[in-house]
Design a protein around this nucleic acid. Structure first.
Length: 563
RNA sequence: GUGCCCGUAGCUCAGUUGGAUAGAGCGUCAGCUUGCGGAGCUGAAGGUCGUACGUUCGAAUCGUAUCGGGCAUACCA
C-alpha cells in the first residue's frame, strides 16, 4: 500500500539520519484489537542493541522526527511504534489504487507457466482423491493469471502403466458385456483385482500377475484387442471425468495422456544412455544417478524388461513441453507422498540440462475417521468416496438448508463453494480430514459464509440502485476503516501468491472480509443514512463486493444469485 | 536405518523475516431481532504451544536432543 510504503521509507530515512543505520527492516504489522492504532512496527526494538539505547527512547526519537499528516503516532509496550491512520486517508488510498482489475498486477508479464492438474487415472471413477489436485491446480492458474502470467493447463491423464494390465485381466474374468461396462464397473474390477493379486502373492502364485504383465506388453506392442480395450476404457473414463470436472467448475486446455510419451520417453532414455548421462544396468534397466544433487537413490528410468514407467513418460512429457510451450515454470499438482519422486525428477531434469523451473505444488492427503475412531489415511482398499457422491451429498444438504426456492444452479454453486473452501481454509500441506459435517459446513469459516456476505452486499446495492449518489468528500470513513484496510491489503496478498502458492491466505482473507462486513452492517445503516453517508457507504460496499468476489474467484468459488 | 512433513483450546485449523495478554471456526454457556437478508452479531468458559535444554532484552517461531504420528526410501503412480 502506497501510503504505508511512503511512511516506511520516511522512517528508514529518519533512522539513517539519527543512527547511520541503513539496513534495518521496517515492517508493519497489525495492532492487537484493544490497543490504539492501526499499524505497528517493532523497528525500535530491533535497533536497541546496535544503537545502544533503550527501545522506548529510540521510538521517541524516531517519532519526534516524523511528519504527522494522515498519521498519529504513539509508543506502546516494550517499544512498539503504533500508527493510527485516518479513515479518510485510507479511502483516498483506495480511490487512487482502484482500477477495473484491482488486485491484479503485471509481475509475470511475458512469462508462461504450464499447470498440470488434476491428472486423473483412466478406468477409475473420479474419487475425492483427485479433489485437491483439481482445486489447487485451478487456483494456481487463477493466481498466476492475476499476476500477469500466461498459463497453459494440461490434464496429464494416467492412461498407461500396470493398471491397464490389471483392468484387462480383471475385465476378461468379470464377464461384463464390453459395450455396457461403466466407469464404476472398472473401478470395482480394479479394487477386486488388487485384492486378488495380493492374495495370490501371499499364496506364492503369480498367474494373475503374469497375465496383467502380458496385457501391458500387448498394449505397448499395439496388439489390436489390447488397444481396443484401452481406448474403450479411456473413452468411458474421459466422459465421466469431464462431467465431474464440469461440476467442480474446472477444466484444462490440453489432455495429454502419459501413453503418448511412452515412445518419446524411451527414445530420450536411449539418447541419454548413449551420451553417458544415464546408465544401463546388466539386467537391462536404466538408471540416472543423482549423487551430485545430494540424492543417493538413483532414479529408475526404464524397467529391466524394457517397458516404460512413470519416470520414462514424465521425461518424454517434460521434453515435449519444453519444446512446444517453452514455459518458464511447470507446476505439478499432486500429493506430498510423491515429494521424493519429484525431487528426483527435477534433479534429473537439471542433469540433462533443462533450465525450466519445476514446481511440485504438493498437499497433504485426505484422512478419514476409521472404525476405531482414529484418524487414518483414506485408501481405495477401504473403499473410496466418489467425487459425484460428495457433490450429490453436498447439494442435498444445501437444498435442505436453503429451501426450495433456490435455483439448481445456485445450489450447485453453494455446494461446490463449501467443498472448495474447506480445501483452501488450511495450509495445503495440512492433511484434510474427510468429515462431511466439516466439508459441507454452511456457517462459520466456510465458503457459504463468504458467498452469503457477497449476496448480501449485492442485495443492498440492488435496493439502492435508484439512489443518486452525492458528493461525499467530507465523509470521514471512520466506521469503514477496518474494511478499507482489508481492501487495501488485497493486492499484496495476490502478489505474494506465485511465491509458494499459499492459497489459504486468500481463503483467510475472504473469511475475514466477510466477517468484517457482517459486523459492519450490524451497526452501520446504509439505506436509512444521510445522503452523504449513504453515498460513501455504497461506494465502499461496491468495492468490497468486487474484492470479495474476486478473492473467491481466485479459489474457483462462484457467487450464487440468491441463497 | 536415512530423508521429508507434522505435533498449538474438547474437535478442525491459523499464527506474517523471533515481538504486546498465543487467535479463528465448530461445539458448550449467556445475551442481541418492530433492523439494508439473524445462515448473522456481542460476550464467557476453554492452552504447560509434545517434552527438555540452549541462543536472545524477548521463543509457538531459531538450534540441539528426545517422545509421538504420517509419508517416502529404483522395476506403482
Amino acid at each position: 500500500m502506497a501510503i504505508m510504503d511512503n511512511l516506511k521509507a520516511q522512517i528508514k530515512g529518519v533512522i539513517n539520519d539519527l543512527y547511520g543505520v541503513d539496513d534495518v527492516v521496517v515492517d508493519f504489522a497489525d495492532v492487537p484489537s484493544d490497543i490504539e492504532g492501526d499499524y505497528s512496527t517493532n523497528v525500535a526494538m530491533r535497533l536497541a542493541r546496535q544503537v545502544g539505547k533503550a527501545p522506548r527512547t529510540i521510538a521517541e526519537e524516531i517519532i519526534a522526527r516524523l511528519e504527522g499528516g494522515d498519521f498519529k503516532f504513539s509508543i506502546a509496550g516494550p517499544g512498539f511504534i503504533n500508527v493510527a491512520v485516518s479513515g479518510k486517508a485510507l479511502q483516498k488510498q483506495l480511490t487512487d489504487a482502484w482500477t477495473d482489475h484491482y488486485g491484479d498486477n503485471e509481475s509475470g508479464k511475458g512469462k508462461v507457466a504450464l499447470d498440470e492438474y488434476p491428472s486423473t487415472n483412466m478406468a477409475k471413477p473420479y474419487s475425492v482423491g483427485h479433489l485437491r489436485p483439481g482445486t489447487q491446480g485451478w487456483a494456481a492458474k487463477k493466481v498466476l493469471e492475476a499476476n500477469g502470467w500466461k498459463v497453459i493447463t494440461d490434464n496429464h491423464l494416467g492412461d498407461v502403466g500396470t493398471p491397464f494390465g490389471i483392468w484387462a485381466t480383471g475385465f476378461k474374468r468379470s464377464g461384463i458385456d464390453f459395450d455396457k461396462v461403466t466407469v464404476y464397473d472398472l473401478g470395482n474390477i480394479y479394487i477386486q483385482m488388487k485384492a486378488d493379486l495380493k492374495a495370490e502373492e501371499k499364496a506364492g502364485k503369480h498367474e494373475l500377475a503374469d497375465e496383467a504383465q502380458e496385457w501391458l506388453k500387448k498394449l505397448e506392442n499395439k496388439d489390436p484387442e489390447a488397444v481396443k480395450m484401452s481406448k474403450h476404457f479411456n473413452q468411458i473414463s474421459i466422459n465421466h471425468m469431464h462431467e465431474v470436472m464440469s461440476r467442480l467448475g474446472i477444466s484444462t486446455e490440453y489432455e495429454m495422456g502419459e501413453s503418448q510419451f511412452v515412445e518419446s520417453g524411451k527414445k530420450a532414455v536411449e539418447k541419454y544412455v548413449a551420451e553417458g548421462i544415464f546408465k544401463r544396468n546388466e539386467d537391462g534397466s536404466v538408471i540416472c544417478r543423482l549423487d551430485e544433487f545430494g540424492i543417493d537413490v538413483p532414479m529408475l528410468m526404464l524397467k529391466s524388461n524394457g517397458t516404460a514407467l512413470y519416470a520414462t513418460t514424465d521425461l518424454g512429457c517434460m521434453l515435449y513441453r519444453v519444446e512446444h510451450f517453452n514455459p518458464d515454470l511447470i507446476i505439478i499438482n499432486t500429493g506430498m507422498e510423491q515429494n521424493f519422486y519429484f525431487e528426483q525428477l527435477f534433479a534429473m531434469a537439471k542433469k540433462i540440462g533443462l533450465t525450466v523451473q519445476n514446481y511440485h505444488l504438493n498437499f497433504g492427503m485426505i484422512d478419514q475417521i476409521g472404525p476405531d475412531g482414529k484418524r487414518e489415511k483414506m485408501s481405495s482398499r477401504k473403499g473410496v468416496v466418489l467425487m459425484e457422491e460428495l457433490l450429490n451429498d453436498a447439494e442435498k444438504r444445501v437444498r435442505e438448508n436453503f429451501g426450495a426456492d433456490i435455483s439448481d444452479e445456485d445450489i450447485a454453486k453453494i455446494a461446490v463453494g463449501a467443498i472448495k473452501f474447506s480445501d483452501f481454509v488450511a495450509d495445503r500441506k495440512t492433511g484434510i480430514l474427510y468429515d462431511p459435517d466439516k466439508i459441507f459446513a454452511l456457517t462459520g469459516q466456510s465458503g457459504p459464509f463468504c458467498q452469503y456476505a457477497c449476496v448480501r452486499m449485492r442485495r443492498i446495492l440492488e435496493k439502492n440502485a435508484d439512489f443518486t449518489a452525492v458528493d461525499f468528500a467530507d465523509y470521514d470513513f471512520e466506521a469503514e476503516k477496518d474494511i478499507l484496510r482489508l481492501l487495501l491489503a488485497f493486492p499484496a496478498i495476490v502478489a505474494a501468491m506465485p511465491d509458494g502458492f499459499l492459497m489459504h491466505k486468500i481463503a483467510g482473507f475472504a473469511f475475514e472480509l466477510a466477517q468484517e462486513l457482517n459486523r459492519y452492517y450490524e451497526k452501520t445503516p446504509i439505506s436509512s443514512a444521510s445522503d452523504v453517508e449513504r453515498s460513501a457507504r455504497l461506494w465502499m460496499i461496491a468495492r468490497a463486493d468486487f474484492v470479495l468476489a474476486r478473492a473467491l474467484d481466485l479459489l474457483g468459488i462462484e457467487i450464487p444469485a440468491k441463497m
